[in-house]
Design a protein around this nucleic acid. Structure first.
Ligand SMILES: [Mn+2]
Ligand SMILES: [Mn+2]
Ligand SMILES: [Zn+2]
Ligand SMILES: [Zn+2]
Lengths: 142, 142
DNA sequence: TATTTAAATAATACTGATTACAAATTAGCT
DNA sequence: AGCTAATTTGTAATCAGTATTATTTAAATA
């Protein structure tokens, strides 16, 4: 997503396009990492050293409200943020919480049929699959 | 699930079948409500008044570990517990967090194909669809 | 059935991610 | 350039969940 499009989106929705918000967008909307708040805060601080953690939280909620990303709560109490809001599978490690996207044409086709069956247009969806990631399997004592 | 099967499951996995655990199971494994910890605690207290909240948390984690239920973390910070661990859709209200099951033969068929594509057997899955529930739509100011 | 003991419970203190707050700053409007 | 409501910051407060530990107990054993 172009920076100008993002600015336009903020304005269109009646929000200010502050440099803090744009710095957060630049990082998180391009990220493939499903980053945590802490990852986002630390990364954005490089470019914008005075940014507050409160601003990061507030901006992530705003981006979620206007549909630019999805918050993924996890059972270790640490949320991750996903800029891909279209139907796709997140492969999530049960141990460390790492998230990987799984793209699937088949899923997309299936999903549109499922949504037809539902009878309403969802505000969003979350499709997770759980396993232990390679790193965690390797270091597993069992 | 029969109470004797549950007791057997605990023993099989090497855990004690305590009355606290059985009281929790009796409530949560039959529940269609995707109850929160608090709902479970308050309900089980009726039957077992001296139970501790710590025991409820510990038991829910145990049940999750042995695959009898799934924890659903939500963005309001309050987890819900789902005794249905097979692939199905949870229709979740974005406002109040209420969860409703959506049963779908089509989904089950689709899902097995998706899993084949994945190339590994998941430890579990979570398929959510978001909307505002009827109650919340009704009381919505917008 | 009584004894033994590792596992489990209960009560409570603690943790840490997130939220609330209020003073200072600022984007965008005119 | 000046205005002002929106936003940011820094910090305090919250509170769901976890850790701790003394006490109790399920169930294995004799
Ligand atoms: Mn994703
Ligand atoms: Mn369900
Ligand atoms: Zn991992
Ligand atoms: Zn609702």
């Amino acid at each position: 997503m172009e920076i100008n499009q993002i600015i336009a989106k903020f304005h269109e929705k009646g929000f200010k396009a502050t440099p803090q918000r744009l710095a957060i967008c630049k990082y998180v909307l391009l990220s493939k990492d499903h980053p945590t708040t802490d990852m986002i805060y630390n990364e954005v601080k490089q470019e914008y050293p005075t940014i507050s953690l409160a601003t990061v939280y507030q901006t992530l909620h705003l981006l979620s409200d206007i549909g630019l990303l999805q918050e993924l709560d996890s059972n270790n109490g640490i949320s991750r943020y996903d800029p891909k809001t279209s139907p796709h599978i997140n492969i999530i490690c049960k141990k460390c919480g790492k998230v990987e996207d799984y793209e699937s044409e088949r899923l997309e086709k299936f999903w549109s049929k499922i949504v037809d069956d539902l009878g309403f247009k969802p505000l969003g969806q979350r499709i997770d699959v759980y396993r232990y990631c390679e790193d965690c399997r390797r270091s597993r004592v069992k």
